[in-house]
Simulated assay, not measured.
Amino acid sequence: MKTLKIAIQKSGRLNEKSVELLKNCGLSFENYKSSLISPVSNFPLEILFLRDDDIPEYVQDGIADLGIVGENVICETEVEVAYLQRLGFGKCTLKLAIPNKGDIQALADLNGKAIATSYPVILGKFLKDNNVEAEIRTISGSVEISPGLGLADAICDIVSTGGTLKSNGLKPFGDVLSSEAVLIGRKGEEEDPLIQELIQRIQSVLRAKETKYVVLNAERKNVDEIKTLLPGIKSPTVVPLAEEGWVAIHTVIPEKDFWSRINQLKAAGAQGIVVMPIEKIIL
């Protein structure tokens, strides 16, 4: 039987979440912290642990069938790969940032300035699209210290919380690219049965993270009104209780919908509301 290969970060901000996702898909593997390759014992899959910059090219060239990597890396390396599934973690923004004290007020003020970045390809496209002519200075690390050292007038870097910018006397100036972790594959091989099975597992885990299993009690006369407030996967399950005229209503709903409707449910007669996490949802 064919064995798939999936490449994920060896270390970095996406490593732990990628490992967690694969384990939640029911995949069993060990020693991933001490090895570059880890076989999965209960699915035809090998996990490759690589530098994030290498993952897109490994997938493009067919060395790996799949990869988990940030969109920013894909855009910077300009590879040809298929986007198979957005994963909802590793969200960040590639931003322009400028010194708190300076004369830059608008994008046009960057003309003739020097901008330090680890993402020259993405930044170059952004500047071209906005008709800005600035010098791009490529720096592999610690981009945020460049203005303080006189190496650049502004920076373009990944920002998650903004704490690093603030500690270096910088402030966000503009968004260049929004990014999150994505599952990628080699173009033309998206319909491979094993790949589709793994995608199905991943999707079931992602759905479960966004939804809750809800059980509540209500008088039978209030069921119709309560059902209109519970947009489940299909329709709620209604089970009679031992007490005459009362039922238990079971459903699965998006967590964001539940919290916006809880007062409406209580007003409609819902009682004893229990909210539980879900491990997987398979459609």
Rank of each mutant, 00 (worst) to 15 (best):
I6S: 08
I6W: 04
I6R: 08
I6G: 05
A7L: 10
I8T: 10
I8E: 05
Q9T: 05
Q9E: 11
K10F: 09
K10E: 14
S11D: 15
R13W: 13
L14A: 09
L14T: 04
L14H: 09
N15D: 02
N15E: 04
E16V: 06
K17M: 05
K17N: 13
K17H: 14
S18T: 00
S18H: 01
E20K: 09
E20W: 08
L21H: 01
L21T: 03
L22C: 09
L22P: 03
K23N: 04
K23M: 08
K23P: 00
N24K: 10
N24H: 06
C25Y: 01
G26R: 02
G26M: 06
L27F: 00
L27K: 01
L27Y: 05
S28Q: 14
S28C: 08
S28E: 10
S28H: 14
S28W: 08
F29L: 03
F29M: 08
F29H: 03
F29G: 07
E30L: 13
E30G: 07
Y32W: 12
K33D: 14
K33M: 09
S34C: 08
S35Y: 09
S35L: 13
S35K: 15
L36Y: 11
L36R: 13
L36W: 07
L36T: 14
L36E: 15
I37D: 10
I37V: 15
S38R: 04
S38E: 01
S38K: 03
S38C: 06
P39Q: 14
V40E: 09
S41K: 14
N42I: 06
N42P: 01
F43Q: 01
F43P: 00
F43W: 01
F43S: 01
P44S: 13
P44E: 09
L45V: 12
L45N: 10
E46Q: 15
E46Y: 15
I47Y: 00
I47M: 12
L48D: 07
L48H: 15
L48E: 15
L48S: 06
F49M: 07
F49G: 11
F49Q: 07
F49W: 02
L50C: 13
R51K: 13
R51V: 09
R51A: 13
D53W: 04
D53F: 01
D53Y: 13
I55D: 03
I55S: 07
I55C: 05
P56V: 06
P56C: 01
E57L: 11
Y58T: 10
Y58P: 09
V59N: 11
V59F: 08
Q60W: 06
D61H: 06
A64G: 11
D65W: 06
D65Q: 10
L66Y: 11
L66Q: 08
L66A: 12
L66W: 04
G67D: 05
G67K: 09
I68V: 02
I68P: 01
I68K: 00
I68Y: 04
I68L: 02
V69Q: 00
V69S: 04
V69E: 00
G70K: 03
E71K: 14
N72G: 03
N72C: 04
N72P: 03
N72I: 13
V73I: 12
V73T: 08
V73Y: 10
V73F: 10
V73M: 10
I74C: 02
E76M: 03
E76C: 02
E76R: 04
E76K: 04
E76D: 02
T77S: 15
T77Q: 10
T77E: 12
T77C: 07
